[in-house]
């Protein structure tokens, strides 16, 4: 009976080891990936980057198709340029915020995983520190 109990304890310790140092870090990585994906999705960073030079809300002016009117062409080109600059101005802050958010998530993720790996140690230290404060 004692042997069986011993085996059981050994097995549970091994399971715990596997869970804490293999299963959970993998799971945390998956969650981290979800958050990173969400950050990009929420601020639409890839889309804003690919359309960075596009017109502001697709406001664009058509070039004259008949005849040659330099004034009209320049006017249209200028209007389109302004629309594109406006688009850039509006997209830029969101790209920056999105990128900062991603950087924050990267650091947070690394910290969380490190914290998790050292959690048993932290718990022991916290326990002793707490007791040292008590007595």
């Amino acid at each position: 009976m004692q042997i069986l109990e011993g085996l059981k304890r050994k097995s549970i310790l091994f399971s715990w080891w596997q869970w804490h140092f293999s299963f959970m870090p993998k799971r945390l990585l998956e969650i981290w990936k979800n958050f990173l994906k969400f950050g990009l999705y929420y601020f639409s960073v890839p889309l804003l980057l690919t359309t960075f030079f596009s017109h502001f809300h697709r406001y664009k002016w058509e070039y004259p198709t008949r005849g040659f009117d330099l004034g009209k062409i320049l006017e249209t080109a200028f209007s389109n340029l302004i629309s594109r600059i406006m688009g850039m101005i509006f997209r830029f802050p969101l790209i920056i915020v999105g990128t900062l958010f991603e950087i924050f998530l990267i650091f947070t993720g690394v910290l969380v995983i490190i914290f998790w790996i050292f959690l048993p140690l932290f718990l022991i230290l916290a326990f002793f520190y707490g007791f040292s404060l008590l007595f």
């Binding site: 999705y41 929420y42 639409s44 809300h57 997209r91």
Partner: peptide, 11 residues
């Protein structure tokens, strides 16, 4: 939760 930047590229 949705996204806030998708409409920027749309008219």
């Amino acid at each position: 939760i949705g996204s806030i930047g998708k409409d920027f590229a749309a008219g």
